[in-house]
Design a binder for these strands. Structure first.
Length: 821
DNA sequence: CGGCCCCGCGTTTTT
DNA sequence: CGCGGGGCCG
């Protein structure tokens, strides 16, 4: 116990020892906020607070898991596992299941992710006879509804003009959104599903409606702690306020400079106004940065100083000055990726770094493609943390839909998806008729299909028969509340889906079948994991000596419902550790929040991309982009490299963007070769004059200047012997099959291995590195001499005289060429 | 009734 | 360039 307070600096110590009353901890990046949070919880327990009376909320499962682990190290696993620690969503779901009846939901309600939600909105729009193509675009409408829910504006007040939503809808010529909203809510209720926003919304509604629920739930906790408070939205804020209303023991930790989720309703005011909400608040500032070098911290400070209305703070690095921030300019996104790969390799040589010391961050997921391609080409192992590409695959969704429907027969979206997959004689028209029938009577599809009245509808006998057969089968699945894996297997087989996919012998078909297999494996993995957890629990409680003593029969039943819930709440960074080991990490700047790496690259530092992933952005949005960039660079411990490209392929078209304004907002003394602010374009070298004009801008030969930062790069592209030693032994292909858990699978698939190159060892040089007269080698035509280079970037053409094949014109962006020593 | 192909569309970020 | 939806053909 005594170790809990050791090694804390004075500010951290003060924050930890302040255990009663509202507390606001402003924690700069890298200032040890997790440390404070975990120490504070451990300290509370050491003071005699029962662990189960402590509620600690985070945004990601990963953050919760890490905290739990660290607390366990201080107070022991046995105590740590009793704490109510988890994500907002997972904890609130637990409350909602308990009181589901009070808000008119079945306790077994299932969760819709955003895709499900958009699909449901779409069906509702169609159901209402509105135009879902040009006017009421489902995505847009869904995000509108989402915003309203985050503001706790339910359909009735929405329709009555509260919050100004309706007026705004009218201005945007979408006056009927309020109807869609109302109908969508009804749809979800009928279907027994909640979307992400509902989890927060209905928790509020529950607390408003049922005094008993509120006092009961709030009464369980004497101390509440919240991580990343700057990212809470109104709904979360109100829940916290209610839970803490009696004791006010609410400790929130956050950094207004890292608020990056306004787009999903986060209110930066929550942290800015905390002291107004709780006047007796005690405020602590953690300003000592233990993560990054002084150059990085100072650079970040100088950047964020461009934002207004911040909580004043002065972050200071506890480390050495370190390297300056490096800028790298490239012609295209492909070359940018190439340079990053080169820089990684050269850094590994010079610093003895390993792959997992590196992260490549970017603004949009689409940017990962070019990066992947180059990394793969150079045999650098990597892992992409991004959306749910595995769970977005059609075949996976199919099987998941069976699972979902089995757990919740009222889930209409899943019903529609699989009712005729594999084909069982239920036509699209039949489903439409059924849906109309159901809609008219407020039934879900399942109920409608089983309704005796269905005979009187326009549906024909055989159609009804097929529908009912399907329903009966699903009913059978639903009755199975046993082991998730057994249930999953029998569903896969008895539904015919397994065979359906197995029998497709095409290459893609086999890959689809593999995904089905992997999904099933992941169910098995999940069950095993839960059992493991349970066994360890018994050991901790002293019930048994050894985990192996626990007999199979004594293990709790892990249901399919639990599996589904786990999957739906997984975030992009929730990946098994062994999947990330010794791999370069690729992710969006958003996903990187809360993580740290020795070396960080930020790719795509261009106007209209970062800042401005989309189009014109408001001053407020610009500030959020700046905070996002602040988050990105403060992930780095040792070095930051910022890269940008003159031209970038987007939507299939080439775009010429100027270097990001953020590059000049960092005070130049922290940057190795700063871009001069006065010059709006062209970076350090003036070679590229106008924006996208034509004419040969190559061939001057003068560009070799400092475009690549420290020159570290330009020569390192030569292939040296021993290069092969950086090749990954276990690259990014999928791991062992049997005990893989869902997130392992997810990450394995995300790395999308591609077919092998003609010559996998051939590492081409960047197209900008060639000059007339160079001796080069082509991976097919062999050796040759570079002739004149013409054309405009990125469509540079080179006339090459090959020793064996003679003169050829090559498009540089496609040709695989390298220098010969 | 189902599967295939073509066209047109659109693109932040995520629990 | 990649996806989804719709239309057309077998």
């Amino acid at each position: 116990m005594s170790g809990i307070l050791d090694d804390l600096n004075p500010e951290q110590l003060a924050a930890v020892k302040c255990t009663e009353g509202p507390e606001l901890i402003i924690a700069g990046a890298g200032s040890g906020k997790t440390r404070v949070l975990t120490s504070r919880i451990a300290y509370l327990i050491s003071l005699g607070v029962p662990p189960e009376r402590i509620l600690a909320l985070t945004f990601t499962k990963k953050a919760a898991g890490e905290m739990k682990e660290r607390i366990a190290a201080m107070v022991g696993d046995r105590q740590a596992r009793r704490i109510w620690m988890g994500t907002f969503h997972s904890v609130f779901i637990r409350f909602l299941r308990e009181y589901a009846e009070a808000i008119g939901f079945p306790a077994t309600f299932t969760i819709y992710d955003q895709t499900d939600s958009v699909n449901a909105v779409k069906t509702v729009i169609r159901q209402l006879g509105l135009d879902d193509k040009n006017v009421y675009k489902p995505r847009e409408v869904q995000s509108r509804i989402s915003r309203a829910k985050n503001d706790l504006v339910t359909p009735t007040p929405y329709a009555n003009g509260e919050g100004g939503y309706r007026d705004s809808d009218k201005i945007h010529k979408k006056p009927e959104i309020y109807k869609i909203y109302a109908e969508y809510c009804k749809f979800c209720k009928t279907s027994g599903v909640m979307d992400f926003d509902d989890i927060l919304l209905y928790t509020n509604i529950l607390f408003r409606k049922s005094e008993e629920a509120l006092t009961n739930i709030a009464g369980r906790f004497t101390h509440i702690l919240v991580d990343e408070y700057q990212d809470t939205n109104l709904a979360q804020y109100l829940i916290l306020k209610k839970l803490a209303s009696v004791h006010h023991n609410l400790c929130v930790v956050g950094d207004d400079s890292q608020s990056i989720y306004a787009f999903r309703g986060a209110q930066i005011q929550n942290i800015l106004n905390f002291q107004k909400d709780f006047p007796e608040t005690r405020l602590f500032r953690l300003e000592r940065n233990y993560r990054s070098t002084a150059n990085i911290v100072n650079a970040a400070n100088s950047l964020i100083a461009n934002n207004e209305g911040r909580i004043p703070k002065n972050c200071v690095s506890m480390g050495s000055a370190g390297e300056k921030i490096r800028l790298m300019r490239a012609y295209t996104e492909g070359e940018e990726a190439f340079q990053i790969a080169s820089a990684i390799i050269s850094r590994m040589r010079s610093d003895g770094a390993s792959y997992d010391d590196f992260a490549i961050l970017y603004r949009t997921n689409a940017q990962s493609r070019a990066l992947e391609e180059q990394l793969r080409r150079r045999n650098i192992p990597y892992i992409i943390f991004s959306g749910n590409s595995f769970f977005e695959r059609a075949e996976v969704k199919d099987l998941m839909a069976y699972f979902k429907l089995a757990v919740n027969l009222r889930d209409d979206e899943s019903f529609k998806r699989i009712v005729n997959k594999p084909a069982r004689g239920v036509s699209e028209n039949t489903v439409k008729e059924l849906a109309d029938f159901a809609f008219g009577r407020g039934l879900c599809l399942f109920e409608a299909a089983m309704s005796p009245e269905l005979e009187t509808s326009g549906l024909r006998g055989p159609a009804i028969k097929h529908l009912r057969e399907f329903c009966t089968m699903m009913q059978g699945f639903a009755a199975d509340s046993g082991d998730a894996y057994k249930a999953a297997m029998s569903i896969a087989h008895e539904s015919g889906l397994y065979l359906f996919y197995k029998s497709d012998e095409s290459v893609e078909g086999q890959s689809r079948f593999q995904n089905i297999q992997e999904l099933l494996d992941s169910v098995a993995g999940f069950v095993e994991e839960q059992h493991e957890e349970y066994r360890n629990g018994l050991v901790e409680e002293g019930e048994v000596e050894d985990a192996s003593e626990v007999p199979e029969s004594a293990l709790p039943v892990v249901t399919l419902g639990e599996f589904l819930e786990n999957i739906s709440l997984l975030s992009s960074v929730d990946v098994a550790d062994d999947e990330t080991s010794n791999k370069v990490a690729l992710m969006t700047a958003h996903s990187a929040k809360g993580l740290e790496f020795p070396y960080v690259f930020v790719a795509g530092m261009e106007e209209n991309l970062f800042p401005g992933g989309g189009w014109t952005i408001s001053p407020k949005e610009l500030e959020e982009e700046r905070r996002l960039f602040y988050v990105a660079i403060t992930r780095a411990k040792k070095a930051v490299v910022l890269t940008y490209a003159d031209t970038r392929m987007r939507n299939g078209r080439h775009e010429n963007n100027q270097p990001s304004r953020f590059l000049t907002e960092i005070a130049p003394q922290y940057v190795e070769n700063p871009i001069r602010k006065e010059r709006s374009l062209g970076g350090a070298s003036s070679l590229l004059g106008g924006s996208g004009g034509s004419g040969s801008r190559f061939g001057g030969g003068s560009w070799r200047s400092s475009d690549f930062g420290s020159g570290n790069f330009s020569t390192s592209t030569s292939r040296k012997p021993g290069f092969g030693d950086v090749r990954a032994s276990k690259n990014t292909t999928s791991p062992k099959p049997t005990s893989a858990s869902a997130w392992e699978i997810k990450s394995a698939i995300q790395s999308r291995p591609k077919p092998a190159e003609v010559d996998p060892d051939f590492v081409p040089d960047p197209m900008s590195s060639f000059r007339e007269g160079d001796r080069i080698e082509h991976n097919r035509f062999g050796k040759g001499t570079m002739g004149s280079i013409t054309g405009t970037i990125p469509d540079l053409r080179a006339e090459v005289t090959f020793d064996l094949y003679g003169k050829k014109i090559l498009l540089l962006k496609h040709a695989k060429l390298r220098h010969i020593k």
